[in-house]
Design a protein around this nucleic acid. Structure first.
Ligand code: FES
Ligand code: FES
Lengths: 151, 151
DNA sequence: ATAATAAAAGAGTTTTTTATCTTTTATTAT
DNA sequence: ATAATAAAAGATAAAAAACTCTTTTATTAT
């Protein structure tokens, strides 16, 4: 196999998380953010990102407005969304319930050989993505100490 | 987005882990396991699994023999391989070094907004897959208490 | 030597994911 | 009302992953 890339989340989901963090940061003062700005600010392909934003919008994780001065924005309640909510919206809730080896059922009664080993890991992962809301990121990281762009 | 499936590992990697556990179990007494038996025992498509076994074999994670009475088998040193070795062979080592959001660099000096939150999770995940060798599984799970098939 | 066996290799196809391009719809400002 | 703006939607296209089928090579047993 060659330089294959398998990340924890899908590309779409990576973009979604980046975009949500990006808009969250700008949404502190009623600012609306256009798709072009989002794409640039996150190094994502514009039209692809547009599709993802439509998804997020349909799933009520973010607000949008058409027309002049339009764009995407978040209200206080949107900022309460967690990384987990984004992941669930885009990649689904498979990390919550699916067997790590892809078996049809994952349960204590029907465990695959890695079930018990992964149980703890999954629990921590889920706790982490659920505890980290966009608001929390905003608060924590308001001082240029983290990055979204690549270059 | 529709019923999308994003698991921790690629499908190929899931199959690889299943196959390795399956052969490990049978390899305790010098038994060789044919590709058909492996595919059946793990609910994987035969020819696809064959490709994966070729990979694993090329990467020296398993032994194989052609011709009559041929098949795949493991020696003592093969049994020392961990889940991590399988994952690295098939999905690469991206979980070791890559940014969860897909940024080009992942480091303490250039952290993405989720870097520090994921650091701990990743550490635990890595520790877990490295500590779990096939031999350990064999020892631990020798009594029909876990499953690889789906039905 | 020959036939049978089973993995290795090669050459596809199909499906899913990622990405691009175009048209439509809604909103705002003039 | 009209023009400008920007998201929504639709329709393809390209790339990657998953899967299938066929041929070749190595090994064993007769
Ligand atoms: S059965 Fe495989 S992780 Fe639970
Ligand atoms: S920079 Fe994103 S996880 Fe390290």
């Amino acid at each position: 196999m060659f330089q294959q890339i398998k990340t924890m989340f899908s590309k779409s989901c990576e973009y979604a998380i980046k975009a949500m963090i990006f808009v969250a940061q700008k949404s502190k003062e009623e600012q609306r953010v256009g798709i072009k700005e989002i794409a640039k600010g996150t190094d994502a392909p514009e039209h692809f990102m547009a599709k993802i934003m439509q998804d997020l919008s349909r799933r009520k994780l973010i607000h949008s407005a058409k027309g002049p001065n339009g764009g995407f924005y978040m209200d206080a309640s949107d900022l309460k969304n967690s990384i987990a909510d984004i992941v669930k919206a885009i990649d689904g809730d498979t990390i919550y319930k699916d067997c790590v080896l892809g078996l049809k059922v994952c349960s204590e009664k029907n465990p695959c050989p890695v079930h018990f080993e992964f149980k703890e890991i999954k629990k921590n992962l889920i706790k982490m993505i659920e505890n980290n809301t966009l608001a929390a990121f905003n608060e924590k990281l308001d001082s240029g100490k983290f990055f979204l762009r690549n270059k």
